[in-house]
Design a protein around this nucleic acid. Structure first.
Length: 227
DNA sequence: GCGACAG
DNA sequence: ATCTTGTCGC
């Protein structure tokens, strides 16, 4: 899928009205997927870079599945086109899990996007799984900072609509943005973010996925230096 | 002096 | 994102 196809697909997805999903089961089965890059040096945003994608599935705090794939990022990073760079790798990693999670966590925006369909929404729709995005900062949405304690939140608005929410996941750390994505609202995104963070800033599934992807990359760096 | 539009 | 140095804003 090239950039033009992604643009068209995102516009189509943004106009859909999928049924809303709400967390009802306990413990929740939450999956997360990430991509990490490896060439060495500073600045990783180019095309044809070696990349490692990992996906994990947790039931509550229990890790029940994990996969790591080695691949290549076809496109460089372009704001608002993250799906072109990371979509294929992330989709392959999640599909390799071979199971359907209740919800999928991705380090990307959802409705907070110029076409109202960032990578988190795009991938959820593509895989037919409710999804939420978790990022350090919003893409286009704006909002006042939340309170200083764990659980404090504040709305992130785009053209008057709440597309994401600042969430203080732990007292004394910078807040994270919880993004409404495929079949989810900012409220649900914030709830899932808080249920997956206890004492730490980053949600457990995302931490585990990152750890595994970096581990695979660093292992490969030793075996094939200069790659 | 160089940026603040996800990763 | 990744690597790193400094701790702060037009």
């Amino acid at each position: 899928m090239d950039a033009d196809a992604v643009l068209a697909e995102q516009q189509r997805l943004a106009a859909l009205q999928p049924s809303a999903w709400y967390p009802e089961r306990t413990p929740l089965e939450v999956a997360a997927a990430v991509v990490t890059y490896g060439c060495g040096g500073q600045g990783h945003s180019g095309a044809d870079e070696p990349a490692w994608a990992s996906a994990v599935l947790l039931r509550g705090s229990q890790l029940i599945a994990a996969r790591v794939l080695e691949g290549v990022a076809r496109a460089g990073y372009v704001p608002a086109l993250l799906a072109v760079r990371e979509g294929p790798l992330l989709a392959a990693a999640v599909e390799s899990l071979g199971t359907r999670p209740d919800v999928l966590l991705l380090a990307a925006a959802g409705r907070d996007h110029p076409r109202r369909a960032g990578l988190a929404l795009h991938l959820g729709a593509m895989l037919d799984v409710p999804s939420i995005g978790v990022t350090d900062r919003p893409l286009l949405a704006r909002g006042a900072q939340p309170g200083a304690h764990r659980g404090d939140t504040s709305p992130l608005l785009l053209h008057g609509a709440e597309v994401a929410r600042w969430v203080r996941t732990a007292t004394g750390v910078r807040p994270l943005a919880a993004h409404a994505a495929w079949r989810t609202t900012a409220t649900v995104a914030a709830t899932v973010l808080l249920t997956t963070t206890s004492g730490v800033r980053t949600p457990q599934p995302l931490r585990e996925a990152r750890r595994l992807a970096r581990e695979a990359r660093d292992r490969r760096r030793v075996e094939r230096p200069g790659w």
